[in-house]
Amino acid sequence: MSALAEILFGGLFQGSLYAMMAVGLALVWTTIGVFNFSHGVFMMLGAYIAWQLVELGLPAAVAFPIAVVVMAGVGWILQASVVRPLIGRPNIVLVVVITTLAAGSLIENGALTIWGPRSKQIPALIDGNTTIGGVGVSLHQIAIIVITPLILAALWMFLNRTRLGLALRAVAQNEDASHLVGLNVTALYGLAFAIAASLAGLAGIFMGGYRFMSPVMGSDPLLKALIVVVFGGISSISGPIFAAYLIGFFEAACSYYFGLYWTPALLFGVLILTLMVRPEGIFASRSRGLA
């Protein structure tokens, strides 16, 4: 019973974080058709901005939303400076990889210069611990498990039920036609990046609440998010979300039964098998559309 509870809990928790990261990557990919390698750095920056605001004396309830909004601005600026000028180039996928990597290195080293290498921690969403099914868990982690699906549901509602969200999906499906019907494609590109950056920033705030932060804290979640989107199929929003939870459970089960060291190897083995059987991902349709 306790084993099952542990796997279930660990899977839900990790899956929530992976989902928050992967959705942003997938959103940018579907809308603009590029891969944002500074996504992990967004996560780190969100956590550091939140830490700085808390340090300045703001209560967490105020600091966290501000950090998320600031991250949206950072995402927009990054898009305008290193992605938008390249749109229309034949090798855009490759060039954006290098510019976002360089931008990520820029932000990472900037954070290192400003805040220094010492580990930091931001306040948890809710303090305290509890025991469920014989497993000790912190309320912070339970808060993440509860909040994440709500945010993802809100994103889904936004993309499927609001005019702006539908416009974003329209750009993803057919950019030329979107121009023709008068959508501001450039602004929508910025919006996609802004949403992705704020989701990553929020994931960073969640992570900074239970683990020490460092300027390189985003690189591992970025890798996991990459695996999630490959696994779930990058061409949709729901695919990566399911895949994130699936991989969360898989990891929790693996590290329970085989140990922490073998988990990445097993995960990669499953990934290779998936790609050999279904290169487009297990939850994906073949088209490049959203949701």
Partner: peptide, 14 residues
């Protein structure tokens, strides 16, 4: 069997 961005993801994972 993969193309473009998927190759990036898999080789990066490798």
């Amino acid at each position: 069997r993969l193309k473009g961005i998927y190759i990036i993801l898999v080789t990066f994972g490798f």
